[in-house]
């Protein structure tokens, strides 16, 4: 019994922080999503106006579709790149020292500012940027490409740039736990390199792929700043819908959108979690 008590006391700070700054805020958002708003203030009510408006507007569906589109494209690209990078680190690099060094090389940008990392694409992609001037000097194009910056392209590029790491780490972790003798056995049994990859490595990496998938899709779906910045405010996703309402002090309407976004994210995760138990994989 005392052991149970100590455990509770040790877990209490974590629980209190999460209750105060995660659970309570979400309950608050759900409550406020039924409130009403004037131009400059909000008032308690129980009405479905915010939801009616949200579901009645064609913009909502377009924006939700756009959000899922960004998530799907980013997911596919980060998975392909992340898997390849992790595979290289886990199976082609042979000394542990180099594995750690190169792995850290990939993770360091994660600990620097996302905003700066977004800004740093501007001199690359702009009308007179490096990409355009290089392509022109090579004679590939005559006119600067307009779609490099402030487009879907630049938004997805920034997402991939920011979030591929979230695929690399869990997949690398899964790969490092694969018993190397399984691969040898497959080779001895006559499997080709592709067959080993397809029938041994990929299935054993599934948990890592799943964790990476959850991270990337939820980060992209909840984003508002990357889309705003990289599209020059010309593209929209759900996060921007929320932040626009916030800027107009329309908190109830922002809350209603936030509730629907949360439900969407939870449904996606729920579907993914049916496939893997995260806790066993750490």
């Amino acid at each position: 019994m005392t052991k149970q008590l100590t455990a509770w006391m040790q877990a209490a700070p974590m629980a209190l922080v999460l209750l105060a700054f995660l659970v309570a805020p979400i309950i608050m958002i759900v409550i406020v999503s039924f409130w009403g708003a004037t131009e400059y203030s909000i008032y308690p009510a129980f009405q479905f106006d915010n939801y009616d408006f949200l579901f009645g507007s064609p913009v909502t569906y377009r924006v939700f579709f756009n959000t899922l589109k960004y998530a799907a494209i980013t997911w596919l690209l980060t998975l392909l790149i992340g898997f390849t990078v992790a595979y290289f680190l886990a199976f082609e690099v042979r000394s542990l020292k180099w594995q750690i060094a190169l792995f850290l090389l990939c993770t360091i940008p994660f600990w620097t500012s996302n905003i700066i990392r977004m800004i740093s694409w501007i001199p690359f992609l702009g009308r007179n940027g490096l990409a355009n001037s290089t392509l022109i000097s090579w004679g590939v194009i005559d006119e600067p490409l307009e779609w490099l910056l402030f487009s879907d392209f630049s938004v997805v590029l920034a997402f991939v740039h920011l979030y591929t790491l979230f695929m690399v780490v869990p997949i690398f972790n899964s790969m490092m736990r694969i018993d190397r003798s399984l691969i040898e056995a497959a080779r001895d049994g006559g499997a080709s390199g592709w067959q080993v990859l397809r029938h041994v490595i990929v299935p054993l990496c599934k948990p890592g792929i799943m964790i990476g998938t959850i991270f990337v899709t939820t980060l992209v779906m909840g984003d508002f700043i990357t889309v705003r910045f990289m599209s020059g405010s010309q593209r929209a996703n759900v996060g921007r819908l929320i932040s626009n309402d916030i800027n107009l002090l329309q908190y109830p309407s922002a809350s209603a959108t936030a509730v629907v976004l949360l439900a969407t994210v939870l449904i996606v995760i729920g579907l993914l979690l049916r496939v893997v138990d995260i806790r066993k994989e750490l």
Binding site: L18, F21, L22, A24, P25, I26, I27, M28, I29, V32, I214, F215, T218, M221, G222, D223, F224, G239, I242, S243, I246, Y251, A254, S255, A258, L261, L262, V265, I269
Partner: peptide, 16 residues
């Protein structure tokens, strides 16, 4: 806490 969009935390805490 990791997967819930961060703007929800921001909005909710601000509202409270």
């Amino acid at each position: 806490s990791l997967v819930i969009p961060s703007i929800l935390v921001s909005l909710g805490v601000g509202l409270i």
